[in-house]
Computed example of a mutant assay.
Amino acid sequence: MSTSTIAVVRIPSSEFALSDTFEQCPEIECDIERLVAQDSDSAMPFMWVRGPDLDAVEDALREDSSVSELEVLSDLSDERLYRMSWVAHIRLVIHILLEEEGTILDAYGRDGNWRLRIMFPERESLSATYDFCREQGLSFGVEKIYDMNDSARAGRYGLSEEQFDALTTAAEQGYFEVPRGTSATELGEMLGITHQSLSERLRRGQENLIRSTLLIDDPDVD
């Protein structure tokens, strides 16, 4: 039985969609919530954009050579949510989504780089994507890889089984609420572990959870 693999990769914005926009507005941040392939020639992202001058960013997006359609879905004071069609500089996206049947879980663009978290159906699909990029002259910097087996499946974000159980039980029992719904001693008794072991599991679990979700958005984090 094959095991799905999640990889965090870095791609220069100059080799990816929206390179024109990043060149004109280098201070922007782009956060993709969903990215699907419409066909072999186009992809449709749902993307949050943040920047000091959102009107200028929108003008740049409408003039971007990789964008054919643009629709504002939400306009907040400091960010906007767009639905758009990408039609250029998306060879890698199409390869991942259609040829390797991968899923782009999220993507974040800032400071001249895109950082993508991708789930491949098997490790060979990641290797094939790396080879594809080399053949096409594209950059594909792999920063993190982890396999999603039975004890650390995709929904656990790199947590061990013990850390997963400790965190979910703590949340269910109101341990993180203010005021707390249960004490550390009571929670440890529920899990059959000491207060010290509980504290260690929660601390390590929270660190793994943050590294697997939040820190992948920061291109400056190793």
Rank of each mutant, 00 (worst) to 15 (best):
M119L: 02
R110A: 15
E27V: 02
R201K: 13
V8E: 14
L126K: 08
E207T: 14
I11Y: 09
P45D: 09
L54D: 09
D53K: 01
V57Q: 09
I210S: 07
P121R: 13
Q173Y: 06
R180I: 03
D217Q: 04
S14Y: 11
D150Q: 11
A88M: 03
D111L: 05
S40H: 06
S14W: 08
A17H: 11
E161M: 08
E162F: 00
Q136H: 15
D150C: 06
R201C: 01
R34D: 13
E101H: 15
F132P: 10
R203L: 02
G188P: 01
S77G: 09
A37Q: 12
H195E: 10
F22W: 08
E15K: 05
I90T: 07
L73S: 04
R211L: 02
D165Q: 08
T169A: 03
M1F: 05
G192V: 03
W86L: 15
G109D: 00
L70R: 06
E207I: 15
D53N: 12
V36K: 05
E15C: 03
H89Q: 15
R34N: 11
S212R: 08
S183P: 03
Q163R: 02
I11H: 10
R80T: 11
R110C: 12
S125D: 13
L214D: 03
I94G: 01
A43W: 02
L209I: 00
L54M: 08
D218V: 10
M84T: 07
E186P: 00
